[in-house]
Design a binder for these strands. Structure first.
Lengths: 128, 128
DNA sequence: TGATTTATATGATTTAGTCATATATAATAG
DNA sequence: CTATTATATATGACTAAATCATATAAATCA
């Protein structure tokens, strides 16, 4: 049994590790949510069907910090709500521009995956 | 001007690097082509719409070697054809099983990308 | 015969991602 | 009231993924 609840959520992908989509996924969530913090963003990923199977929540926080350093998000420390203090992030104008670029990238990757699945299904159909 | 022709093919993705799909793409190509070698597989990637924008052809050869070590492909050195010797690969039974797993993984990733693009388009529609 | 194309390969490095663990506040159970 | 669990963020050390730079060699072309 895992020491932290988070570990139990992490099942991993069969046949491969999740790729480099954490950053665009976080940018998108911050665009549609307006503002959010790390722990909450983790839950939103699932709710929005962005099945990013994160192995390590530390990486999520680290990624947000890197994104802030690069100016695509900004944060402030918030102790006003319930529970412990949260680092609340918002997307910047620079972040919105980067998200737009990501959208083209991910659309192109999606096209490749469509091709992949189509070719595989055709090959399966023939051999059977 | 690049010293090697290959360098000129590499434009890179805007807004992010290509993810970990080289291995499943190569497995699929070997399934449908029967057999092929590294340099040829690079061309097939584009022909089949698997737009994997490889930055470094060395990584392709390295990946094939790793895949062979792990038993998902096998190779033999072939000097019978035109041009210099080629290392010709075929997919193994183990490779076919792994490819099937990859198919589920990539289908799940495709779903995430569909969600991403849908959410982005909706958000764009509202703000404009 | 010198440049180009086809073809494979690897040492060194950088970047991405994971593992293990630390810390602190608030809520809940006994 | 205290011990445990849940919420929340963080970082040092490490491993794996990917790139950069470069080497090699046979065949073809100018």
């Amino acid at each position: 049994m895992p020491k932290w609840k988070f570990k139990a959520w992490c099942t991993g992908y069969p046949g491969g590790k999740p790729p480099r989509f954490l950053r665009p996924f976080l940018l998108l969530l911050l665009l549609v949510e307006g503002k959010s913090h790390g722990y909450e963003l983790l839950e939103r990923l699932r709710e929005y069907g962005l099945n990013y199977e994160l192995q390590d929540i530390g990486y999520l926080y680290r990624t947000l910090r890197v994104m802030e350093r690069e100016g695509v998000v900004s944060s402030r420390w918030d102790v006003s709500g319930e529970g412990p203090g949260k680092r609340v992030y918002t997307i910047t104008e620079k972040g919105k521009k980067e998200l737009e670029e990501w959208t083209r990238t991910l659309a192109s990757i999606k096209d490749s995956l469509d091709s992949f699945l189509k070719i595989y299904m055709e090959a399966r159909g023939k051999s059977e």
